[in-house]
Design a protein around this nucleic acid. Sequence first.
DNA 1: GTAGAAAAGTGAAACGTTTCATTTAACTGC
DNA 2: GCAGTTAAATGAAACGTTTCACTTTTCTAC
Lengths: 342, 342
Amino acid sequence: MTTIRDVAKHAGVSVTAASYALNNTGTIGEATRKRVLEAAEELNYHPNAFARNLKKRKTHTIGVFISRFGGSFYEEILEGIHSLILDTDYELLVCPESRSARRILLHRQVDGAIVFDSKISDEQVLKLASRHFPIVVMDRDLQNDFILPLLLDNPQGVREAFWHLHQQGFRKLAFVAGAMDSFDNAERMATFLAEAERHDLHVPVYQGNFTEISGYEIAKAILQSDDLPEAVFCANDQMAIGFLRAMKEHGLQAPNDIAVIGFDDIPLAHYMQPSISTIGTPRFEWGTTAVRQLIDFIENETPFQPQRIPTRFLPRESSILNLHSQTSTGETTHGPASPAPS
Amino acid sequence: MTTIRDVAKHAGVSVTAASYALNNTGTIGEATRKRVLEAAEELNYHPNAFARNLKKRKTHTIGVFISRFGGSFYEEILEGIHSLILDTDYELLVCPESRSARRILLHRQVDGAIVFDSKISDEQVLKLASRHFPIVVMDRDLQNDFILPLLLDNPQGVREAFWHLHQQGFRKLAFVAGAMDSFDNAERMATFLAEAERHDLHVPVYQGNFTEISGYEIAKAILQSDDLPEAVFCANDQMAIGFLRAMKEHGLQAPNDIAVIGFDDIPLAHYMQPSISTIGTPRFEWGTTAVRQLIDFIENETPFQPQRIPTRFLPRESSILNLHSQTSTGETTHGPASPAPS
DNA sequence: GTAGAAAAGTGAAACGTTTCATTTAACTGC
DNA sequence: GCAGTTAAATGAAACGTTTCACTTTTCTAC
């Protein structure tokens, strides 16, 4: 492993000179700079990042902490994050959950973090966040000078969905919940139940965990009974997909037998048959917003601006009664994100 | 920032003792170890990873280098990689392309790398790989003692697809190519053209770049002419989706007007209408294999075992003529990866 | 030609760990 | 109670950079 010492020797200058030349800092003659750079090239020198970071105490890297890669959900957020990173000279580092208690995060191998993983406890986030280590959280309602919550505006989308169902005359509703420890699940459920309450409707809640299989199994259980709901709201699309699969196996169809609504607008929701009504959100921008604010804080200590990420109900086949008696072109041929024509 | 020095002082021991206690190394009394650990806890101490790695020259981390997160393609590979990592005490670090020439990789902030990004040049990989820095490549045919290529068996799947088309009587074929610099694209194209050649068929090639929009635009161009192909092979599913979208807009249907085949078996391919015939591959296992071999090399210098990742043609609606006159249950209700019932 | 200023270059300390080589303390068995 | 061992604890060097404070060289203006 060649070090800066080797480069300096090879170029016949001091280590300091070599360092200045390589970093374009300090004060150094054009001729020697050239010599140093050539020596570095020749020796295939690459600075040791650990030594450098140890000294500089800056890594120029931001870390994103997610639970896993699957599920189509993070994808677009990550793309947004990545796209903004490309415009900066920051490095991006994505860490899924790992056994060894997230050394990367704890050991501050990054200058700031974006946290989207409920396995990381609130206490950890609180303990870690500081002027020198700002954190953006996207999955919990935590806030101080160094912690920026960027949360979905769940109530908005859920209300729209509820109205949509109510307006069409659905009264016998059910709610399929996601993981208990999820902020989003809690808020979606609370909003839906509150809306129902206001209309004097009682809504049974079935406990799932955001996976397709849990939606499938809940549906199986429900379909055993002879007392079916008219419409089901699932806390995310995966579960809605599972629910629909079970319905199909029982020879039932959405929306006529049971209307189904999901949440997230993952690409599949648009392409399924029937297409799934869901609540969409600008995930790409969600990601860019997070990075923008984070880097702004790191570089200029710009105070964090908490904001809610808008959500919007997207009516599709799985919950629109008599769709085919109405105009029904549009939608299916457009991109995944497009709503029904107004 | 509390350092080990603070911990040592607080516990009333030497720095060395603190280090030994914290790392469970050296020789240290049970009582003092306790005291040190308590002090560390109390001061909320976390070792500085840079200092540590600088000294130890091991990071216990493996790095995955991909071009981007989107496209549904990497997702399952990353899940495989992640799932195996969880069984080890290694850390995982995923880096998408970034402006600053991939410091992470170059600066060896990881103990080994998995490269799946054509923007990283062959020369770089060759220069970098060594006994102390093994590299698995998944997107290029590069090999030596320290570089393990894990490539798709493109020829297998492409041949099956070709036979499938040929057997149904399709003779007027076209090939929609992906990015020029892609190994997979090259191999898929070469195989397809070679098969065609053997049957004295001439196949025009349209140059795309793996994106949906490129497939869409190529289709638009083709559909202008009055001389349509009978079947089109797209080098990946994204382009096939774009192609089908354009066809729909022209009021054409697959497979009757033009049969369409893709490659990759991304989840959408299964759910589209019509479902898309494609070539599937065990991406999850692809990821686990990469990690397994990499860590085995790092820990035991187990020699790399190059192997091809199997591929398999999955016939679906977009290329099966008269499907509905045959048995046609199954498939659509199964999970995305399941092939047609045999 | 010289004083003074600017430019170019250097030595050494520091970043926070780990670990080698030593010293000191605590046990043995007789 | 002592020599010999083993256990426990320590000081200091090292990892590869960057950067401060300083010295040497070169330039400028008179």
